[in-house]
Design a protein around this nucleic acid. Structure first.
Lengths: 257, 257
DNA sequence: TAGTGGTCTAGACCACCCG
DNA sequence: GGGTGGTCTAGACCACTAA
């Protein structure tokens, strides 16, 4: 390769390729622009398609590119700041309209992942409501949430209503809102989208997501648990009032100049 | 394939493989156990090695596996909860001993990523201290941090001391600690490790990391900015008192039973 | 139907670790 | 030196999208 670099430490091709592409994105492309297809790009750089794809995958992971089968690869806009701070949703999305498409099913605790069941201090028997929702920002789905609410937490929930569907989902949320919230607990980790979440987030299964697990405390007990999966490619989770700031894409060139 | 599934929706092989392996990890393996090598595993499942690797990569992304070149693939322990809550470090790691190996260099604002420079409301001229540290948990490096402190934020910093090295790093941190902190701002996003961070975190460049960007406010102005990159495979970031809980690995089998 | 990205193969060589 | 995972190739076919 005709760069100025000596052949001291042979950098992997895909890594070098990613750096070159990253700089090209900064200088020669604008947001939304379509890149040449993978076969052309690979030929242009003199590498196999698989190698080129390895570079593109990294750039997509960093939120620089957006790839869609049958369409092409486009330059992604900067990640949007998504507020997940405490003040924003004392109870998840009760007042604001960022959460949509609620649904609700009721079953036993066995319907929840074992790790979720472990977060409830007591009452592992009895019924469990599972509310499914989608969070929209700028018209795009950014998160899919499963909210687990033991029936014991909402004793005044009318039992006569529909046993599922958006109507019951709103009933559960309304009951939760009436409860006094003592505090909450939050954790963030990397995961890969399950098939159902991926579908709602308009991504392929296995796409990287940021999993936000929240425990809601009422009267010293865990009253509900929320597992929200955020698109990792398009979202930057904010915990404060910095939602309108741009943070660097964190690639190897982040230190450049 | 001799499974019970009809050929209705041909699931990708690597996806099915990942599910099978995930279940095998739960039942037939214990933490730290070594898996057969990739060539053997690929032959056993009747797929190409590249396909097998696609499944392993996903499992590693979810924190289930740990792969080391020249050694092998082992079953990873559950992710550790790493507290990044406000109360834990009013100023980053001043009192506790989780942060180690501090170093410090001083230069201009051009030494910082452009996105970081943008977070300082004023005083883009002048000097900028850059403190580099590593966060250790259970004897393992979990995060590499770059703390950007404008010289204007620590006017009483003795100028005669060493211009770099751990000694000066501690001086800067000590000065910061003397300041009254009005508040802070935090954002989390997915990134890939730069070469230098990867080295400190004992990972390969490009490894997935959770980038935590923090802005520290003093007197209504941004007094310092911290960019901390946490290992995404081994860490679960906690914002509260849930540090000792286990959260589910978020794979496609997370809903199983 | 043509073009895109997604999956898969069967090889090869390299960098690294350990005995 | 022998075994591991990491990189790379040159193909092939498939699933999806849009004209």
């Amino acid at each position: 390769m005709g760069t100025t670099q000596l052949e001291t430490v042979p950098e992997p091709k895909y890594w070098h390729l990613k750096t070159v592409l990253s700089e090209a994105l900064d200088t020669d492309f604008s947001v939304g622009e379509i890149l040449p297809n993978e076969r052309d790009l690979a030929a242009r750089f003199g590498v196999a398609r698989a190698t080129l794809r390895q570079a593109l995958e990294q750039l997509e992971l960093e939120g620089r590119l957006h790839r869609r089968r049958g369409v092409g690869t486009t330059v992604a806009p900067p990640r949007m700041g998504v507020d997940v701070s405490t003040s924003q949703h004392t109870w998840p999305g009760t007042a604001d309209d960022v959460w949509q498409s609620a649904d609700c099913t009721t079953g036993t605790f066995a319907a929840a992942p074992a790790a979720v069941g472990r977060m409830f201090t007591a009452s592992v028997d009895g019924e469990l409501h599972t509310v499914r929702r989608t969070r929209m920002t700028h018209g795009q789905p950014v998160a899919a949430e499963l909210l687990y609410v033991p029936a014991a937490s909402v004793p005044e929930l009318p039992a006569i209503e529909a046993t599922s569907g958006p109507v019951r989902a709103r009933s559960v949320l309304r009951e939760l809102q009436r409860l006094g919230l003592d505090g909450q607990d939050r954790a963030v980790e990397l995961g890969s989208a399950r098939a159902d979440d991926a579908k709602e987030l308009d991504r392929l299964p296995g796409a990287p997501v940021l999993v936000v697990t929240t425990r809601y405390f009422v009267g010293g007990r865990t009253a509900a648990v929320s597992v929200a999966t955020y698109r990792a490619d398009t979202c930057r989770l904010t915990f404060g009032d910095s939602g309108d700031l741009e943070i660097s894409h964190h690639g190897p060139a982040a230190h450049a100049s």
